[in-house]
Amino acid sequence: MLVAIDDRDTVGAVDTRLLRTFVTLARAGSFTAAARALHLAQSTVTVHIRTLERELGTPLFDRMPSGTVPTRAGARLLEEAEEVLDAVARLRATAATASGQGDAAGGAVEGQVAVGAGDSLCASRLPGVIASLRRTHPRLDVELHAADTATAVDGLRTGRLDIAVLLEPEVDESDLLARRIADEPLAYVAAPGHPLAQRAAGWAELADECFFVHEEGCSYSDRLVRTLRGLPGARPRITRFGSIDAARSCVAAGLGLTLLPRVTVERHLHEGRLTVVDGPEAPPVPVQLVRHRKRWFAPGAQIVAEELTRAFTAA
């Protein structure tokens, strides 16, 4: 699709694919990261940016050893480009409704909705929600992307994600809208044969234990690590994984403890592979439903947000 962009005294037609590549590169900070986010070859990203710079008649990025940084012109273009892409999304939604493909015209809602969430939710609650949506809205393609908070926030800003579901006490970003839809209980767990299994344990007993927790950027894991390392004389042994499965497997093998959302270990507790440790209070972690404040929230995204809210509220 082509859009008209007023560049000083000239008007040129710019392919919106180039604008999407530009916005993604500006947010990602490198050609490699942008290519990965867009599922394009790095050479294609390079061609898109060079073409856009040629059409607009100005460099948009400074190429630095550490990555790419928007020039002054690039920084000014970024917000405008995001608004253009948002307008294109609105036009497509309006066209779908007018042609009888949208909900307002009595047809089934269709399109793609990208949802980002942390590993714990991707492995527990979200697959069931997406399965339900596929039954009730078969023409709605819901994509689930595993992402930590920083990656999800960046995805919302670049348009790679429509919705993020985050386990965070709060989301304090001026360009994002966050709504708390639930609280996720946490549990300390260990293998059934662990000395602390099924009994009360205070911080003094946990201070020298081995903990296998989620990677840095996970709010509840970060809080646990800070607390353990702040205990007087404590020498906690902490291993961090990008996968909850890895942490859970180490704990099930009797190597130590972990702190995870209870929903992610419920089956393992039922099967007797893990057991609860009655440790210090671990407040439930809020579940935040997040979207971009300015970007068009398409009918399909609204349906997904409503189903997520319903599912988490009912859990």
Rank of each mutant, 00 (worst) to 15 (best):
A75N: 14
E110V: 05
G102N: 01
V69H: 14
H137Q: 12
L91C: 10
R157Y: 00
P138H: 14
A164N: 05
E168R: 15
A75K: 09
D86S: 15
A105E: 04
E168M: 11
P59S: 12
L140P: 08
L140E: 13
G116M: 04
L121H: 07
L126K: 00
V142G: 03
L166P: 13
V109F: 02
V165P: 09
P70G: 10
A182L: 10
A131G: 13
A117V: 11
M64G: 03
T136R: 14
C122H: 05
T151A: 06
A108C: 13
D183E: 12
G159A: 03
A104N: 07
A114K: 08
A87Y: 01
R134E: 10
G100I: 06
L56G: 12
T149Q: 06
T94M: 06
L126S: 08
A108T: 15
I130L: 15
E110T: 14
A114H: 13
T58F: 03
E79G: 09
T68P: 11
R180P: 04
D154T: 14
V115D: 08
R76W: 03
S120M: 02
G128R: 05
P65C: 04
G116L: 04
E110M: 12
L121A: 09
V129N: 01
E55Y: 01
F61S: 04
G155Q: 07
T68I: 14
G74E: 02
L156G: 13
A150G: 09
G102A: 07
P169S: 12
L156W: 07
T97R: 00
L176H: 10
A152I: 12
L177F: 01
V109Q: 14
D172T: 15
E53Y: 02
Q101N: 01
R125Y: 07
S174C: 00
G111E: 08
P185T: 11
A123P: 00
G102P: 02
A95P: 00
D86E: 15
V47R: 15
A89M: 09
V113E: 09
R76P: 01
E110N: 04
T68D: 13
D154E: 15
A187D: 00
H137K: 06
L133F: 05
